[in-house]
């Protein structure tokens, strides 16, 4: 594994918003096909990481580097990152009234295809794929005609994010708490959505507060993000440990010493 080329390499990243430093020496390396779970207390900087990686306006990088697929990610515009295969499923998906889901999916799929020199998708092919995706995330077909997230329940919005992921087939999927606000059945759906998309050329960063999601998705790595950096990394068993002990033992005092115990 270690000699495969990395998909994403984040080195010593310091970044924040409006003068407020949030990521403070963040390091992460992801190889194609890997699934990384990121856990950590509220306000640690998990969503910030997703925004910085996707290039959201207002988020400034002070220092450090991010390489994605061999390119300097930080040089690219938001849509260029998306077209290069970076996908962010939002913690709080926003509504776009009047723009139908199907219309939105077509515009997105076509944008990504155009950026890769491919022709626009035919409406019938799109419809076929969209219907299959609806089925997979268990949203009624009627949702394709509704406005993007317009009046959707919290859980429906999350499923809708997954549907977009299924159609866009990104290289790196960052799921920001896609499991929160979901009922148990839906949790399994998210897990199935991710598992079905797992492949040697697709990686995942799964931000979650709950170990139970990781029961269904077996991550290759689990990281703990606290106060802007990764303070501990391990395999799936780390999530279990966190579940029983919380984060306090990591954050207070000498982290290394406590892990030693």
């Amino acid at each position: 594994m270690s000699n495969t080329k990395s998909l994403l390499t984040i080195k010593d990243l310091y970044a924040g918003i409006e003068e407020k430093q949030i990521l403070k020496g963040f390091n992460l390396d992801i190889k194609p096909g890997e699934v990384h779970a990121i856990m950590g207390p509220n306000g640690a900087g998990k969503s910030t990481m997703g925004y910085v990686l996707s290039g959201r306006d207002g988020y400034e990088v002070e220092s450090g580097s991010v390489t994605f697929n061999g390119e300097n990610l930080l040089d690219l515009e938001i849509e260029e990152r998306a077209n290069a295969g970076l996908f962010l499923a939002f913690q709080y998906p926003v509504e776009i009234p009047g723009v139908s889901n199907l219309e939105f999916l077509k515009a997105s799929v076509d944008a990504v295809r155009a950026a890769n020199g491919e022709e626009a998708i035919t409406s019938s092919e799109l419809l076929k794929q969209a219907k299959a995706a609806c089925k997979q995330v268990n949203l009624p077909l009627a949702f394709l005609k509704r406005g993007v997230n317009e009046g959707f329940s919290g859980g429906e919005k999350k499923r809708n994010e997954l549907m977009q992921m299924l159609l866009l087939k990104p290289k790196l999927c960052i799921l920001d708490e896609t499991d929160s606000g979901l009922d148990i059945d839906a949790l399994q759906l998210v897990a199935e959505g991710v598992n079905s998309q797992r492949s040697p050329d697709r990686s995942f960063i799964i931000v979650t507060h709950y170990q139970r999601l990781l029961d269904y998705i077996k991550p290759d790595f689990v990281h703990v993000l606290a106060d802007g950096k990764i303070v501990k990394s391990g395999d799936a068993s780390l999530a279990l440990e966190l579940e029983s002990q919380g984060y306090a033992w990591l954050e207070n005092g000498n982290v290394e010493a406590k892990i030693e115990e």
Partner: peptide
């Protein structure tokens, strides 16, 4: 941001 994140 949502639209641009989806490639538009």
């Amino acid at each position: 941001f949502l639209c641009r994140q989806r490639g538009l």
